[in-house]
Amino acid sequence: MSIYSEPTLDPNDVPRAKKGEPARWFDHKRNVNKIVYGVYGFSAFLLLIDPLIHKHGPFAIEHWIGFYGIYGFVGCVFLVLAAKELRKVVMRPEDYYDR
């Protein structure tokens, strides 16, 4: 018995989808759309109830209507777009350090 763990599997040996496999719930575009519209709807709901929430924090900006939602949205868009720019600077081929 080896003292090492088993070698990692080769991805090519993983079983593949068989032909005529029944479609699953997520395979239908309309179901994915349902989730997307659900996210839109829930976002709108959270924004609408925002004025009803009494906030206790010390920072003025927190009391702006919809601050958390807008900040989360803008923050994430910035994050992704900035990361895309970062790729231009830092991205190298996968075997960069092996050469």
Binding site: G72, R92, E94
Partner: peptide, 26 residues
Amino acid sequence: QLLVFSALAFTVLMRTGLYPPELHST
């Protein structure tokens, strides 16, 4: 609010194709 709007950002970026694809890279 913070989280759902982050999910919203992800959805919008995916749907508009702005989300960076997964690439082989270092």
